[in-house]
Design a binder for these strands. Sequence first.
DNA 1: CTGAAGAGCGTGCACGGAGCACGCTTATGG
DNA 2: CCATAAGCGTGCTCCGTGCACGCTCTTCAG
Lengths: 151, 151
Amino acid sequence: MSESTAGERIAEDFGDIVRRESRAVVYGELTAGLGPALDEATYPVLSGLARGGPRSAARLGHDIGLDRSVVSRHADRLQGAGLLRREPDPADRRASLLVLTEEGERVVARMRARLAERFDAYLAHWPAAEAEAFARALHRFTQEALLPRES
Amino acid sequence: MSESTAGERIAEDFGDIVRRESRAVVYGELTAGLGPALDEATYPVLSGLARGGPRSAARLGHDIGLDRSVVSRHADRLQGAGLLRREPDPADRRASLLVLTEEGERVVARMRARLAERFDAYLAHWPAAEAEAFARALHRFTQEALLPRES
DNA sequence: CTGAAGAGCGTGCACGGAGCACGCTTATGG
DNA sequence: CCATAAGCGTGCTCCGTGCACGCTCTTCAG
C-alpha cells in the first residue's frame, strides 16, 4: 500500500539537494576548463540545444524555461566562443536558427562524459541491476513528472 | 556489465531537466499562496534550516552553498513573514541562531506535503515495489553522489 | 499588387539575487 | 588587560532575468 511513502521520500530529497547539485557539483566541475563562455548560465542553452537540435531562440527559450532575450544574450557569448552559430532560417528570413558548431558538439559530449563518469563512479558500488533500474526509473520519472509541457 | 550505461543515462537526465524542475515545477506551485516572502530564493534557506536544524547564518550558508550575506538577507524576509526568528546563541553572544517558528515548521511541512502529493500522483501509475525502490535509490544516490562535503 | 497587421529577433532598461569588503561587537589568548 | 581573530549585518557592485520597444520580414486581405 502506498502510504505515500515513496513520494514523501522523494520530496525530501528533491527540495534543495538537487538545487545544490545543479549548481556546485554539476556546473562547477562540469564546465571547468572549457572556456569562460561556458558556465551555469549558458549551460542550459548549450545543453538544451544539443538535446533538441537546432531551433530558434524563442523556441529554445520556451523549452528550457527562459525568456527569448536571455537565450539570445547567452547565445551571443557562446557564439563568441565558437561553440554555436546562427544560421538564417531558410524558411523564414527574419528568423535565426541556433546551431551547435562542431566544437560545441565536442564540448557537450565532453561534459556529458564527465558527468556520466562521476555518476558511474558512485554507482560502481551498487549492484549492476540496481543501478540500471535506477537509471531507467529516473529517466521515466523526469519524463513523466518533470516535463509535463513539451510543446 | 556496466558499459557506463547507467551513468550516461543519468547524466542525460540531470543536465538541465533537473534545473528546469527546480525552478518551474517545484518552486512555482510549491510556494504558491504561502506569502510573498517565500519564493525560489528564500526556499533553500527555509528548507535547509528545516533539514539540519537551528544554525548560524554562516553555517547554513556553507551547507546550502550560499554566502552568509545572502542567507542573512533572506532570513530577514522570512523573519518579517514570521516563518523564522533569530535567537542569540547562548554559547556565543555575538552569534545568532536561525530558528524556524511554529508557523515556519507548518509551512515547510505543507510544502513537503504538496511536493510529495505531486510525486505520488505520478508514481501512482508505477508498480508499488518499483516506486519504493526508486525512492530508496534516489535517496541513496543524492546522499552519496550529490552531497560529498557535509561539514 | 499593395498596404496593413502580425511574428520573430535583438537590445535598452529596471529589478533582484549573489558575492566581496567594511565596520561593529564579542570571544580568546598572551 | 590589550591585541588578534571570529561572527554578524550591511553598502556596493556585478550579472542574470524579464519586459518593452524598434526593426525587419512575412502574411493576408482588399
